[in-house]
Design a protein around this nucleic acid. Structure first.
Lengths: 94, 94
DNA sequence: CAGGATCCAATTGGATACTG
DNA sequence: CAGTATCCAATTGGATCCTG
């Protein structure tokens, strides 16, 4: 279920709880759920929701490895990189 | 009562209901309450809140003229112009 | 004209416990 | 490990009516 990738929806997602932190963490390299849970100080409920949102918006990508125990990594997409760069520029000047 | 002007709070304000529309309308030139109420399709309650928020964030400025009937105009600040330009660039590429 | 006050419905997110 | 389910409190915004 792909959601409409509008300017507004991207802004909303990023400005929500832990949205920006998660995006930036993933931009550093493949990132896992548990790492984010600790590092972004966010409840699993919200983290899960945010990851799904950012994925549906095409800013990050979910890759699951068929291992035991399960391993899932999130990586930045090209679109995500664009968003990071532009919003990062805004963050700089504010 | 000045609120902390952080990257996050600016993103939030702009991504909220009618936030971006209001900012862009004001960027066109001095803008009045009633004009925005009709043009941004927003309830007076939300419009009032958003204007206060954008003002406290230093993105727009409120100028009241001591006339009867009262006239109030909102104009863009330099900071507001910066935000418009950067976010506008993001809107372009999405 | 430019809002403020009130009431209400929907959305959002924390805490916690549980599962494939 | 990577989430999901549930319950609950706070936030947000529409509709409507009122006022300096």
């Amino acid at each position: 279920m792909r959601r409409d990738v509008t300017f507004r929806s991207v802004l909303k997602a990023v400005s929500r709880e832990a949205g920006w932190e998660i995006l930036r963490a993933v931009a550093e390299g493949p990132t896992r759920f548990t790492y984010l849970e600790k590092n972004a100080r966010v409840s699993p409920r919200t983290l899960s929701e945010r990851l799904k949102e950012l994925t549906e918006l095409g800013l990050i990508e979910r890759v699951a490895y068929p291992e035991v125990p399960p391993r899932v990594e999130y990586t930045l997409t090209a679109r995500g990189r664009t968003v990071i760069e532009i919003l990062g520029a805004l963050e700089e000047v504010l």
